[in-house]
Simulated scan of single mutants.
Amino acid sequence: MDRNLPLAVLCGLLVGLSIYWFLSPDWFIAMGIAAVYAGAGYFYLAFDIPLLGSAIQFDDRIDRFGYAIGLFGLSVSPIAFAQYYGQQGATTLPFVILFIGVIAFLLFTSKARQQSEHIH
């Protein structure tokens, strides 16, 4: 039996329960974050994707600069949105955790798709 999906669901539940218990008592937020992390966890476990490896590399200096600007925007924008829309910063950390999970999910699914295309 493939253990990747149950392990990914367990990972998502652990993240979701941690969010619910420690950061946000809203079950809807915790459930959404749990689903994102379960999806990202599945693709991380099912495919050989390095967690801290650099998946995207550019040779041109201008491309690397543009990539750096985009990464800076990705790292700063969740905090800015959470502070702007949050209630006195109460939703800042769950929002940042969700945003990081969304990025991980999209990155892992992209790499998994590339790997599955090379297999077939």
Results as ranks from 00 to 15, higher is better:
residue 1 M to V: 10
residue 1 M to K: 09
residue 1 M to L: 07
residue 4 N to R: 14
residue 5 L to C: 10
residue 5 L to F: 15
residue 6 P to Y: 08
residue 10 L to N: 01
residue 14 L to R: 00
residue 16 G to I: 03
residue 19 I to T: 11
residue 20 Y to V: 00
residue 20 Y to M: 00
residue 22 F to C: 10
residue 23 L to G: 05
residue 27 W to L: 06
residue 30 A to N: 03
residue 30 A to V: 03
residue 32 G to I: 05
residue 33 I to N: 01
residue 33 I to S: 01
residue 34 A to H: 03
residue 35 A to D: 02
residue 36 V to Q: 01
residue 39 G to L: 07
residue 43 F to K: 02
residue 44 Y to A: 08
residue 48 D to V: 00
residue 49 I to P: 03
residue 49 I to V: 10
residue 54 S to D: 14
residue 55 A to F: 02
residue 58 F to T: 12
residue 62 I to M: 12
residue 63 D to C: 03
residue 65 F to D: 12
residue 74 L to K: 09
residue 74 L to N: 12
residue 75 S to Q: 12
residue 75 S to V: 14
residue 77 S to C: 10
residue 78 P to M: 07
residue 78 P to F: 08
residue 80 A to Y: 15
residue 80 A to F: 15
residue 81 F to K: 08
residue 82 A to S: 15
residue 83 Q to G: 12
residue 86 G to M: 08
residue 90 A to F: 15
residue 94 P to W: 07
residue 94 P to F: 05
residue 100 I to P: 00
residue 103 I to V: 15
residue 104 A to L: 15
residue 105 F to S: 06
residue 106 L to I: 10
residue 107 L to Q: 11
residue 109 T to Y: 02
residue 111 K to P: 00
residue 111 K to Y: 09
residue 111 K to L: 11
residue 114 Q to E: 15
residue 114 Q to I: 13
residue 118 H to K: 15
